[in-house]
């Protein structure tokens, strides 16, 4: 087999046939431009650069949002604390929040917030975790495919509807069970329970993800030693997924603390330093909503005070979220 023939042909074709698609004879000149000697230099692509710049700005807006939040909350809080009636000591030491008479102690709002959140966690954590274990370790595939959308519906219902639920069903229920004398019409327990229901899907779906991420080999090993399904789920899989479950719990707490409409509707409209979940009390978020719902004049001490509360709320939820992310990152590869 001789190779010279094709080579010779190649030499010719190099001159004449480069470019055109199918046997064209447009010597070098092609429809797309660019003949034998071509210019590979970079062309300025203005549109391309502009678009990229615009896209970067889109990403940067999220940073601006954060900066905006920090600036707004920080500035108004500074103005609040610059007021002679308030100082940090009174703010964090006082147990009375009565703007009308110049009392700005944050504790009544904080205790109410924590009480509602505690009740919520008492409801949501066990139930959410049990649901997660059931979905991940017990439920057949078909059942899971039915149950998950139902939980998603629960998560997709607006919070104001939950507030309505708390006030018109949960509160009468509690009053029926514990007696009308003990349970006030507005109370943190009812709000807390309903917040708990609201965050169940959050706990269950995040925990389920963590449980399902545990490699199957661990389960097989456990079964291989004669463990039952329960023992495998609770002693092997759950510990292996502990970081993810813990992260879910923390996110749920953060969510409960920031929840607003349920407490605004069902927990009560007036700061109240109490530790009874059946009494009316106003949470931080509930207070912000009530105060700003009225006609608020800018730069009044009321106006500034809600930003101080907001700042506390922001820092609280932010650190909880950061903690949960840290846990996930820190302990992620333990059982890989």
């Amino acid at each position: 087999m001789s190779r010279s023939a094709p080579l010779a042909q190649a030499a010719v074709s190099a001159e004449t046939m480069r470019g055109p698609v199918a046997g064209g004879d447009r010597k070098g000149e092609t429809a797309l431009g660019g003949g034998p000697q071509m210019d590979l230099r970079r062309k300025p692509r203005v549109a391309e650069t502009l678009i990229q710049g615009f896209l970067f700005l889109c990403g940067a807006i999220s940073v601006l949002t954060t900066l905006g939040i920090v600036y707004v909350l920080g500035r108004e809080s500074l103005l609040f604390f610059a007021n002679e009636e308030v100082n940090l000591l009174k703010f964090f030491g006082g147990t009375e929040w009565q703007p009308a008479i110049g009392r700005f102690g944050i504790w009544p709002l904080v205790t109410a917030t924590f009480m509602a959140s505690m009740v919520a966690m008492v409801v949501a954590l066990p139930i959410g975790l049990c649901i997660a274990i059931y979905l991940s370790e017990y439920a057949p595939r078909r059942t899971r495919n039915i149950l998950k959308p139902i939980l998603e519906v629960l998560a997709g219902i607006p919070t104001v509807v939950y507030g309505y639920f708390a006030l018109t069903l949960m509160t009468p229920l509690l009053r029926g069970i514990f007696g009308r004398d003990l349970v006030e019409i507005y109370n943190t327990a009812s709000a807390g329970i309903v917040i708990g229901i609201l965050v169940i899907p959050l706990v269950s779906s995040m925990s389920e993800d963590a449980l399902r991420a545990v490699p199957n080999t661990l389960r097989q090993a456990s079964y291989g030693l004669g463990a039952t399904r329960l023992e495998t789920a609770v002693r092997i899989v759950l510990p292996a997924a502990l970081s993810g479950v813990a992260a879910a719990f923390i996110v749920a707490i953060s969510r409960a603390i920031g929840e607003t409409m349920i407490v605004a509707i069902a927990a009560g409209a007036g700061p109240n330093f109490t530790f009874s979940p059946f009494r009316a009390a106003e949470t931080m978020t509930g207070h912000i909503v009530r105060i700003s719902g009225g006609d608020l004049s800018y730069d009044s001490i009321d106006y500034n005070s809600i930003f101080a509360i907001g700042l506390l709320l922001f820092l609280l939820t932010l650190s909880l979220n950061a903690l949960s992310q840290w846990i996930v990152r820190r302990f992620r590869e333990e059982y890989e």
Partner: peptide, 14 residues
């Protein structure tokens, strides 16, 4: 990722 976890009422204040 962090903004997604900020309570909605904070956005209201913003």
């Amino acid at each position: 990722n962090n903004l997604a976890g900020v309570p909605s009422i904070i956005y209201g204040m913003l």
